[in-house]
Amino acid sequence: MTYGVWCNDKMVYEVLSNDEWGNDEMMYDVWCKDEQGNDVCCNDERGNDVWRNGERMCDVKQELLKRTTDSSFDVALFLLHPKSKGYIRLESSNPLKQPLLDPRFLEDPYDIEMLLKMIRWTQKLEKTSSWKSLRVKLIRYDMEGHCGEIEFNTDAYWRCIIQHFVVSGLHPTSTCRMGSRRDPTAVVDPTLRVYGIKNLRVVDASVMRNVISGNTYSPTLMIAEKAADMIKCGTKY
């Protein structure tokens, strides 16, 4: 959710600049800088414009950026334990072929409803004295073809916004989860060795049983440290 801070009908409180907002927030993958530092459309690996749901995504992003200034700021809402689960599968026996990856975001309705509750909680902040003193106002995301036809601030409206504008937290885990031989979902044993394949370990966030409640960076370092110790000690524990 993006907000503007107003004083005398002008946005004045600088929290997050447009450049920062464009780097890692909504639809980050379609917005780039040219050699002169101007905003331009990013292309995919084949040089084509990125499209989604029939829209050229950088056009959508450009429209949204018009609604913000250097005083805009985001309230980032993170669903720590989504129920939707994706998959990664082999496309063929060719090891050089890219695997099939489908994150299946929002497949479980629970995730949408939890995000809706988080939005409603955030809206309560608008009524606090701190936010009122800054004259904070919501900057709407809707536009023609993107929830603009739905009555604003209804549950249906926010469910539509969630489905159009949600992005990944970029910390996928558990595609090679650790477990016992009796666990049909397990890929590696407690020493991170891949079941059924000799001399192969997996040492990254994919061995986590489930997604954790925080950033995966430090825990992944600890997994690597533990793996290094086990390898050095001949995996006797």
Rank of each mutant, 00 (worst) to 15 (best):
Y3Q: 00
V5D: 07
W6F: 08
C7H: 12
K10E: 14
Y13F: 14
D19N: 01
E20N: 08
G22P: 01
Y28W: 10
V30K: 01
C32N: 00
C32E: 05
D34R: 03
G37W: 07
C42R: 04
R46V: 01
G47C: 01
D49I: 06
V50H: 06
W51P: 02
N53V: 05
R56P: 01
C58Y: 07
K66I: 00
S71H: 00
S71P: 02
F73N: 04
F78K: 05
P82V: 00
P82F: 05
S84K: 05
K85C: 11
G86F: 04
R89C: 09
L90E: 08
N94M: 08
L96D: 09
L96T: 11
K97S: 15
Q98H: 12
P103T: 07
R104G: 01
R104Q: 05
F105M: 10
L106G: 11
E107H: 09
D108S: 08
D111S: 02
D111E: 04
I112E: 14
L116P: 04
K117G: 14
K117H: 15
M118N: 10
I119A: 08
Q123A: 07
S129N: 11
S130W: 10
S133A: 14
L134C: 08
I139Q: 07
D142T: 11
G145M: 06
H146D: 10
H146P: 02
C147T: 10
C147N: 03
E149L: 07
I150D: 05
E151A: 15
W158R: 05
I162V: 09
I162W: 00
F165Q: 01
G169N: 13
P172W: 04
C176Q: 01
M178D: 05
R181V: 11
D183K: 03
T185D: 13
T185K: 10
A186L: 08
P190T: 00
V202Q: 03
D204Q: 04
V207M: 07
R209F: 15
T216N: 06
S218Q: 07
T220G: 08
L221N: 00
K236M: 07
